[in-house]
Design a protein around this nucleic acid. Structure first.
Lengths: 375, 375
DNA sequence: CTGAAAGCGCTTACAG
DNA sequence: CTGAAAGCGCTTACAG
């Protein structure tokens, strides 16, 4: 502004405001930031001029001068994945409460891009970086991650992760995947199933590995072993794996897809192939993303408090770091039996089972009267 | 760094790198940015030192010195809304192609928060701001928006909107809501329906108003008038409106929910009340968010190229602005008939209708052999 | 090709 | 309470 510059490009600066208000830069700054007491008349004048000129402070200059930033970074695999979308809701809300701006990036599961984004966020001096979603079991990648994250943290940057590889020594919100999957397996055993299949994603994803291990572990306790079909970690992956499963002989009576998103694909595959759920095959997922209650049949799943997980991760990242070691918040899953699971063909509905251990993996009792089983 | 500072907080600066490499600041800068030719040995040295020190440039300093930024801002109502999620996918992909960082904010439909975010993005000197989702018909709000947006654009900031109020004179990606809804109405009339209801959100949202107008307009051409039920612009709003609708006597044979998200709620309401879709009532939505093909029954809807809309908005914002006036890209909707709609009870399935105008509103022919009707 | 220096737009001790 | 000045960490003409 100042000298009425040419076409666009020009910004009103603090200096413009100060000059026009007849005060020093320092005073103008103090008024606009409420940093210190300023005589009322000067205050008014500065405020009026700032409004008149539609002054917008330059956040870069502020960040540089004060070495602080209002931005936090969030890295996920895909914004449009409903699992992430639900978590991000909690993140966004909490960020807003703290007057923070969120920089959000989708990696589309490209490890290089992930590292690139971290570098960008580091350059932006983001106050915190949140990594959401399962990491890889990959040495080279771990090293590269550490090479970005370590200097960032050393310089005061905060990092928190949701459902991530444990190799990262950072504050973590960790769903109890093993326990949740095991509880689900037991609930399905209680329904009378004995022949299981699991639809998994790549086992190099820790989430996949943990859920698979929990499920098969609980089955092993009953002397059973599921057939395992691996597919892409997406809706289409679930569809494809389910279609393949239909060629098995004999068909399993119960299918566990390691995520709801995969289960959605599986459900549609079954429908497209005329397979009745749960009449011919029972189907269960994991996560309880909002949409699954609207499917027909509604999906049995292990509910995770997704919104809250996002909120907690954000809060962890905003809290003072613990000097010595990283914090970890474990989030229990809760088995929710819906209409997509039923006793296997030919088996009568179970009598109301004697309550054995009516508690979630973390010991929390299930809400009374809800359609949930938690053991 | 430099003098081995205390615990954290310290960043490696360009000066550290230059010093250690025995070159000037300018040379170090040139090497790291590839701005100019630098003697090979110096180049190597700078690069090696930068890597060794894990140097990360300060993006704020860069932005300040070069007055440019790699960040763009995106404002939506709710990241976790699948409609927005689908659009944002295109945005994120395109941003990544251009090596841009996306700052994403959810307003949760709070006008004040929207304006606040724009101010923040303006302060960040975001290269562009994208507004995604229907705006309000509200004078005061329009003025406040303009007060932020105008100075931003005058200073060279770019703005593009998706499906927004026309009062904003900015580049726009605009779905043809009217035409799409009208085409849908005609397709449903062709099925034999004569008694319609519309489930709408608040009519102050332009998207709602346009779709409602298009639908009722086409019905009026057939001498019909739908009953209109207003609810929240959400899944739960759709559920509630549908539940209310069930009390109507006689019940309509066909229901149009102005968005898929509302239609999802309606579908579940019908299921919960034991109403067969499409046996007793046909149901259609608008948008074709990915999940609706996985519902049972799959939802008839008007498909919008959501991903592409996000991409186009991003591209518009990145292109040189047109001197005189704003650009507008109209996106045609395509009617997709799925199993959630059928002839009304008692009416036989229509003979294969003579093709009348087998074209989408924009004149594009529907893909051959697809299960779509487009007129 | 390389370097010294000015400048980007703020904040914040430091004096008054 | 107010102002002059240094400094945040870069980029980029301008000389050499």
């Amino acid at each position: 502004m100042g000298e009425q510059t040419g076409p666009g490009r020009s910004h009103v600066t603090l200096r413009d405001v100060a000059r026009r208000a007849g005060v020093s830069l320092a005073t103008a700054s103090r008024v606009l930031n409420g940093t210190a007491q300023v005589r009322a008349d000067l205050r008014e004048r500065v405020l009026a001029v700032a409004a008149e000129l539609a002054y917008a402070p330059n956040a870069h200059a502020q960040a540089l001068a004060s070495s602080s930033s209002k931005a936090i970074g969030v890295i996920c695999h895909d914004v449009s994945d409903p699992y992430f979308a639900a978590i991000s809701r909690g993140v966004m809300r909490t960020a807003a409460e703290h007057d923070l701006l969120v920089m959000l990036a989708s990696t589309f599961r490209d490890p290089d891009r992930e590292i690139e984004y971290i570098a960008m966020l580091r350059a932006q001096r983001a106050r915190a970086i949140l990594l959401i979603g399962s990491g890889f079991e990959d040495r080279a990648w771990e090293r590269a991650m550490a090479a970005e994250l370590d200097p960032y943290m050393r310089a005061g940057g905060r990092v928190a992760v949701v459902s991530r590889h444990r190799s990262l020594r950072v504050d973590t919100v960790q769903p109890q995947n093993r326990e949740g999957a095991a509880a689900l397996a037991r609930a399905l055993l209680d329904l009378g199933h004995r022949d299981f299949a699991v639809l998994t994603g790549p086992r190099s994803l820790t989430t996949v590995a943990d859920r698979l291990a929990g499920f098969t572990g609980a089955l092993a306790d009953a002397g059973l072993r599921p057939r395992v079909l691996e597919g892409g970690f997406t809706r289409d992956g679930g569809y494809a794996a389910a279609a393949e499963l239909l060629r098995l002989d004999p068909r399993p009576t119960c299918v566990f897809a390691v995520t709801d998103v995969m289960a959605i694909g599986a459900l549609t595959a079954f429908r497209d192939h005329g397979v009745d759920v749960p009449g011919e095959v029972s189907l269960a997922g994991f996560d309880d993303i909002p949409i699954v209650a609207d499917l027909t049949p509604p999906l049995t799943t292990v509910a995770l408090p997704l919104d809250e997980m996002g909120e907690r991760a954000m809060r962890l990242a905003l809290k003072e770091p613990r000097a010595s070691r990283s914090r970890i918040e474990r989030m229990a899953g809760r088995v929710i039996l819906r209409a997509s699971t039923a006793p296997p063909p030919g088996v009568p509905a179970p009598r109301v089972p004697a309550p054995r251990r009516a508690a979630a993996p973390d010991g929390t009792p299930p809400p009374a009267g809800s359609a949930t089983a938690a053991r």
